Simulated assay, not measured.
Amino acid sequence: MTEYIPIEPRRLPEPMAMLLLLKPITWFPPMWAFLCGIVSSGASVTGHWVLIIMGLVLAGPIVCGMSQAANDWCDRHVDAINEPDRPIPSGRIPGKWGLWIAWAMSALSLLVGYQLGPWGFAATIFGVLAAWAYSAEPLRLKISGWWGPGLVGLCYEGLPWFTGAAVLSAGAPDWRIILLAGLYALGAHGIMTLNDFKATEGDRQLGINSLPVTLGSDRAARLACWIMGVPQGIIIALLIFWDRPVFAGIIAALLAAQFWAMRVMLTDPKARAPWYNATGVSMYVSGMMISAIALRGLL
Results as ranks from 00 to 15, higher is better:
44 S>K: 13
45 V>M: 15
45 V>Q: 14
45 V>H: 14
45 V>E: 15
45 V>T: 15
45 V>A: 15
46 T>E: 15
46 T>I: 14
48 H>C: 15
49 W>G: 14
50 V>Q: 15
50 V>N: 14
51 L>G: 14
51 L>I: 14
53 I>G: 15
53 I>H: 13
55 G>A: 13
55 G>T: 07
55 G>R: 05
55 G>N: 05
55 G>F: 04
57 V>N: 13
59 A>R: 07
60 G>T: 13
61 P>Y: 07
62 I>L: 12
62 I>Y: 04
63 V>N: 11
63 V>C: 14
66 M>P: 07
66 M>W: 03
66 M>G: 09
66 M>K: 05
66 M>L: 09
68 Q>A: 12
68 Q>C: 10
69 A>N: 03
70 A>F: 01
71 N>R: 09
71 N>H: 08
72 D>I: 05
72 D>F: 05
72 D>A: 11
72 D>Y: 02
73 W>E: 01
74 C>P: 07
74 C>N: 08
75 D>I: 01
76 R>K: 06
76 R>L: 05
76 R>P: 00
78 V>S: 06
79 D>S: 06
79 D>H: 07
80 A>N: 10
80 A>F: 08
80 A>R: 09
81 I>M: 13
82 N>F: 10
83 E>L: 13
84 P>F: 04
84 P>D: 12
85 D>I: 10
86 R>W: 05
87 P>E: 08
89 P>S: 11
89 P>Y: 08
90 S>K: 10
90 S>T: 08
90 S>M: 12
90 S>Q: 11
91 G>V: 08
92 R>D: 10
92 R>K: 10
93 I>P: 01
94 P>D: 11
94 P>E: 10
96 K>F: 12
97 W>H: 03
98 G>W: 00
99 L>Q: 10
100 W>V: 00
100 W>P: 00
101 I>R: 00
101 I>T: 01
101 I>P: 00
102 A>P: 05
102 A>R: 00
103 W>Y: 07
104 A>T: 00
104 A>F: 00
104 A>R: 01
105 M>F: 05
107 A>P: 04
109 S>P: 02
109 S>I: 03
110 L>H: 01
110 L>G: 04
110 L>V: 03
111 L>N: 10
111 L>K: 00
112 V>D: 07
113 G>R: 02
113 G>A: 05
114 Y>F: 05
114 Y>D: 07
114 Y>E: 05
117 G>T: 10
117 G>H: 04
117 G>M: 08
118 P>F: 10
